[in-house]
Design a protein around this nucleic acid. Structure first.
Length: 783
DNA sequence: TCGCTTTGATTGTGT
DNA sequence: ATCAAAGCGA
């Protein structure tokens, strides 16, 4: 295995703090893997003392596989690690859930004032909002329009990620809304512990609270002496503190990251964590991996040029020895349907061309050989690549990656791919675990596992319909609060509730007995069989057929079969443990791991999701102002810079060919909309990018204009699409604003400009609330 | 009191 | 265009 000098340094720096700045595709994963291998095989460190934290499940999985391979271990990826004396590798959330369970088995937390019992469950965003809504409207009797659950959730999340507990929130109250947030937050925390549930923020927050205990901290410091954190630029304050505590004893902390690829600040990630690493660990060795082994020079130059427009970027340049040169192609499509069709057409045409004349692909032989050699030496664990399927040849559907800013954008592209019979796969969490039928079953599992959970019961008590309506639920809730008993006990004693009629009573009783049966079965049955039992007993199939048409019902049943299939992975565990493990995976893993490894398909995903991978040919679609950069980011310079870093990430996913597309006019939100070309495209130097040449003849065949034109025959096509359907957003004239002007913001009301330099202004909306804005684009008016 | 129809928001990224 | 919540009839 050949590492370059810098990678070698990183590998050999052990027992010492280490900061690795790794630019896109500088083979950082290979370096990290080599480091772990070195630690275990040559330094003889106990593998179980190594803790590796990654950012996504995909990255964790890949790293686990690579390390297993190096250690000659062939085991199932899902299996818990301790049992084999292996490094603990996972995402922040999955690792801390694991540790929390471990702690709950060993220590009594009531001394720490932490209300958490062993069989806790994890709430997803949806559950969280449901609970908050309930608190806002029922407990506090507030108007939901005035205090939307989403907004309250945002404040609570912010608090939890800045180390602010509910009881301390009063100190942060500086506005009317925060006063209400404080109330909601306190009730929310109370209900969460009653339900024995954690939300995503809690997983980190509670861990940090627990680690403040010296006995427990000491135990884990001894247990994990070697800590590595990948994607360090995307850690937030709580994660930072957890790592800091764990590493404080032995200071064997290695962090890897790149501030240019910081794209998760909306999840409270703070790139100062990486920039200030030297402040906490002044003795740290710093290694910079600047050489990119993947992309062509053109792509790298262009990506560098785009990201250089960020004022806060540190001075650095990504470079490559790879001199091959293929320009970035810009697709300036007339409309959205055409944009998608052109992408599909390019994939189709190039596929055919490659199949017909494979010699033709070999033009770049010198580069080819260099890369092939490099690739083989450094990543020798990858299976042998035949010369014809090597690094530079694009001959499969799976060499194509289509990226976009937001999830729902996949639809149109999917349609275009379907019409050309191109196989594809959308990587999207909603695709599986968020399906209604899957969620229903998972909610039954959660309710079986944790009988304290109210939200869970409410979700399933009337699915399939048992004629239990909102009135009945309300009564049950009143009784629950009056007697302060767990929900399950209220259900058990439903006959004693006078406010319910007999009909409702028997329905509830029936449901209670059903759940009792499920809980009994769960004690002696593994999850997979348990799910089957639930589906049979509920007669879920009949329910689906009643609710949807046959075709859709069958499709949904297939999803349940797939869920059962996934659950069989946990059959080797004890019944109750298999349930607990399965629920943990479902809560923390956002999308299905591809089962069909050999299948050949085009991949579609958001840019955020694409961070961990690379592809030979990449398409970035919908690159237009207000889509990418996203409309909600336009008002703040900071968020715009994050969008630009996102563009950098998107561009550097490409190894060989990069296509960027936009449509002059598109139909969305039930309207025709025209956006101007994204500023990011303009930031790419002209000599690095060229236009895709469209043939008018094809364009007629594909276009939706053709259909539209029938309705308005008198207009020629070029006239038709030169009519703007909506008004393009107007900019403010900066020169009309001056210091101390009073301005009106459509959301925040009337306030004052307190500082002004160029387009940037500070506007005071209240004494404490001063916001930086770009007055050219902010929705403000002078008054 | 439940279930169906209409209305109104919604779509920013994901552990 | 799509989905959840509010409004209305049985």
């Amino acid at each position: 295995m050949h590492l370059n000098e810098k990678q070698e340094l990183a590998k050999n720096t052990i027992n010492w703090p280490l900061l690795i700045i790794a630019w896109a595709w500088s083979w950082k994963t290979a370096t990290l893997t080599a480091r772990v291998e070195h630690m275990i095989k040559e330094v003889w460190i106990n593998p179980a003392e190594i803790l590796c934290v990654t950012f996504t499940n995909k990255a964790a999985k890949e790293m686990r596989e690579r390390i297993w391979k190096r250690l000659w271990i062939h085991i199932d990826n899902n299996i818990y690690r301790q049992k084999w004396n292996l490094p603990l590798i996972g995402t922040f959330h999955s690792i801390w859930v694991y540790l929390l369970k471990d702690v709950l088995n060993k220590y009594d937390l009531s001394e720490l004032w932490i209300n958490l019992k062993k069989d806790f469950i994890i709430y997803d965003e949806d559950d969280k909002l449901k609970l908050l809504k309930w608190i806002i409207t029922v407990d506090l009797q507030l108007d939901e329009k005035q205090f939307p659950a989403r907004q309250i959730a945002y404040y609570i999340s912010e608090a939890k990620n800045s180390w602010l507990a509910a009881k301390d929130y009063v100190w942060a109250v500086d506005s009317f809304i925060k006063e209400k947030v404080s109330q909601v937050y306190n009730i929310y925390e109370k209900k969460m512990s009653e339900n024995n549930a954690l939300d995503f923020d809690d997983i980190l927050f509670k861990t940090l609270q627990i680690l403040k205990n010296h006995t427990i901290l000491d135990y884990y410091q001894e247990k994990y002496k070697y800590i590595m954190v990948d994607e360090y630029q995307d850690t937030n304050m709580v994660q930072y503190q957890i790592i800091k505590l764990l590493a404080s004893k032995y200071r064997n902390l290695a962090v890897v990251g790149d501030d240019w690829q910081s794209i998760y600040s909306w999840r409270w990630a703070d790139m100062r964590n990486i920039i200030n690493f030297k402040r906490d660990y002044s003795e740290a060795v710093v290694v910079k991996l600047e050489q990119n082994y993947r992309s062509t020079k053109c792509i790298i130059d262009a990506a560098n040029c785009v990201v250089k427009n960020n004022k806060t970027a540190l001075e650095k340049t990504l470079w490559t020895e790879n001199e091959s040169w293929e320009k970035i192609i810009f697709i300036d499509a007339p409309d959205d349907k055409l944009e998608a069709s052109i992408i599909a057409k390019i994939i189709e045409e190039k596929m055919n061309k490659n199949v017909i004349s494979s010699e033709w692909i070999w033009v770049d032989k010198s580069v080819e050989e260099t890369n092939y050699a490099l690739n083989n030496s450094i990543e020798n664990s990858k299976e042998q690549i035949s010369p014809f399927q090597s690094e530079w040849q694009i001959s499969k559907y799976s060499d194509n990656l289509i990226l976009y800013r937001t999830n729902w954008q996949s639809r149109q592209i999917e349609e275009a791919l379907l019409s050309k019979w191109i196989p594809y796969k959308v990587v999207w969490w909603l695709k599986f675990y968020d399906r209604k039928e899957v969620k229903d079953i998972i909610w039954y599992l959660k309710a079986i596992f944790n009988p304290n959970d109210v939200i869970g019961f409410k979700r399933i008590i009337n699915t399939p319909s048992r004629k239990i309506g909102s009135r009945t639920l309300e009564v049950l809730d009143i009784y629950k609060n009056n007697f302060s008993l767990p929900y399950f006990q209220i259900l058990e004693n439903v006959e004693e509730i006078d406010d319910l009629n007999n009909w409702a009573k028997s329905a509830v009783k029936w449901f209670f007995n059903l759940m009792l049966n499920f809980r009994e079965v769960a004690k002696r049955t593994e999850v997979a069989d348990l799910i089957q039992h639930i589906v049979d007993k509920l007669d879920y199939k009949t329910y689906l057929i009643d609710e949807f048409w046959t075709e859709e019902a069958e499709w949904k049943m297939d999803n349940i079969k797939e869920l059962i299939n996934l659950a069989t992975n946990y059959n080797w565990l004890w019944p109750t443990e298999s349930l607990s493990q399965f629920l943990e995976e479902v809560a923390l893993i956002s999308d299905l791991d591809s089962v069909e490894n050999d299948a050949d398909y085009v991949t579609l995903m958001t840019i955020h999701t694409s961070k961990w991978l690379e592809q030979k040919r990449v398409f970035i679609a919908w690159v237009e102002e207000s889509i990418f950069p996203h409309i909600r980011s336009l008002e703040s310079e900071k968020e715009l810079e994050e969008e630009r870093r996102l563009m950098y990430v998107a561009m550097t996913r490409a190894k060989k060919e990069l296509y960027i597309s936009r449509a002059i006019e598109r139909f969305y939100f039930g309207n025709y909309v025209r956006n101007i070309v994204s500023r990011f495209i303009k930031e790419i130097p002209k000599e690095l990018i060229e236009d895709y040449k469209m043939e008018i003849s094809n364009f007629w065949l594909w276009s939706s204009f053709w259909i539209n034109l029938k309705d308005s025959e008198t207009i020629l096509w070029w006239q038709w699409f030169s009519i703007p359907k909506i008004k393009v957003k107007e900019f403010n004239d900066v020169s009309t604003f001056s210091l101390w002007d009073r301005v009106n913001h459509h959301k925040f009301g009337n306030w004052i400009i307190t500082s002004l330099s160029g387009e940037l202004a500070e506007i005071a909306f209240s004494e404490k609330w001063i916001v930086k804005m770009n007055i050219k684009i902010a929705p403000i008016k002078k008054i």
